[in-house]
């Protein structure tokens, strides 16, 4: 996994792009096309975008740049995955816990990820979240998600 070889990194991304564009073009087949005027309908655009992307993908396979991936470090993902996790958890739990609970929990994790100690993380999360809530919900009347008990 250390070396991708000459242009290997670009070939890999090109393959992913190829796969994506084929799927994209294929999805265009399922558009329920109604009446359209002229020769180009709503699905043709999708085909056009997809086919150009396929060509571009092939182009990148044939003429990759010398760019090398810096190999992904697992250590880094041990920090990134929790961020991914808390955002997912946030969007799932927001309807139940409401903004304050979900946001404070998320911010504590993010603050910890960026090297805060517990005291700092909690203090920072609580203050910023409260401030945000105060501003949106109370001053401007924009709901940030109230949760189950405040409906």
């Amino acid at each position: 996994m250390k070396s991708w070889g000459e242009g290997g990194a670009d070939r890999l991304s090109a393959l992913i792009i190829l796969g994506f564009s084929l799927a994209y073009g294929y999805a265009g087949k399922f558009i329920q096309v109604g009446f359209y005027n002229g020769d180009i309908g709503p699905h043709h655009w999708i085909y056009m975008v997809a086919s150009v992307m396929v060509l571009l993908g092939f182009g990148l396979v044939l003429r990759p740049t010398q760019h090398e991936f810096e190999t992904e470090v697992w250590e880094d993902w041990r920090k990134r995955l929790p961020l991914v996790g808390v955002i997912i958890i946030y969007s799932v739990f927001l309807p139940y816990t409401g903004f304050l609970g979900a946001m404070i929990a998320m911010m504590i994790v993010v603050a910890k990820l960026f090297g805060a100690n517990w005291k700092q993380a909690i203090l920072c999360s609580v203050i910023l979240s409260l401030l945000c809530l105060l501003l949106f919900d109370h001053l401007l009347g924009i709901s940030l998600g109230r949760g189950l008990w405040l409906k």
Binding site: Q120, L123, L128, L131, C132, L135, F136, L139, L140, I142
Partner: peptide, 26 residues
């Protein structure tokens, strides 16, 4: 220092969020 840091943070948050808040009128 931490408290000062947090205060700076909140100050920034306040000014920046005044911006965000404009997204929707009540």
């Amino acid at each position: 220092q931490s408290i000062l840091g947090i205060l700076t943070g909140t100050a920034i948050a306040a000014t920046t969020m005044l911006g965000v808040a404009m997204a929707k009128p009540g």
